[in-house]
């Protein structure tokens, strides 16, 4: 059902945990689908220097969370905002079609964490790409 990369990230998730006094936090998910994730970021000079996550959900949800932390770390926040859900799925060697929505929320969580960073540290409200329909249905 899952690609070897998904299984690897599921079994050995990278960057699990919480960042104390984070520069941004993003939480997405919906218990109906059984997925809930929170992404924490530490930012220095607009560069994401640390990312951590916690996720309640299926293997796909855990693997996408783990993958997004690896993809975001070291990136400029504006570059990280360009990471899409499709990028995450592609880097994981694909996801089963049924898992492309509910369980593929990590990019949204990251975007919300960056939005939080802009608000908290720069006092700026920014628009970010999220998929509310996948969080509520």
């Amino acid at each position: 059902m899952y690609s070897p990369v998904v299984m690897d990230h599921f079994k050995n998730p990278r960057n699990v945990g919480v960042i104390e006094n984070p520069d941004g936090v993003g939480t997405v998910g919906n218990p109906v689908c059984g997925d809930l994730m929170t992404v924490y970021i530490k930012v220095e000079n607009d560069i994401i220097v640390d990312v951590k996550f916690q996720t309640f959900g299926c293997a796909a949800a855990i693997a996408t969370s783990s993958m997004i932390t690896e993809m975001a770390k070291g990136k400029h926040v504006d570059e990280a905002l360009k990471i899409t859900r499709q990028n995450v799925a592609d880097n994981l060697g694909g996801l089963p079609p049924v898992k492309m929505h509910c369980s593929n929320l990590a990019a949204d969580a990251l975007h919300l964490a960056i939005k939080d960073y802009y608000k908290k540290r720069k006092g700026v409200d920014i628009e970010v790409e999220v998929h509310p329909e996948d969080h509520t249905h």
């Binding site: 299984m7 599921f10 079994k11 059984g34 997925d35 309640f56 959900g57 299926c58 293997a59 949800a61 855990i62």
Partner: peptide
């Protein structure tokens, strides 16, 4: 705090 599919796969 745990989702079933993760548990089954583990």
């Amino acid at each position: 705090g745990i989702e079933g599919e993760s548990l089954v796969l583990m």
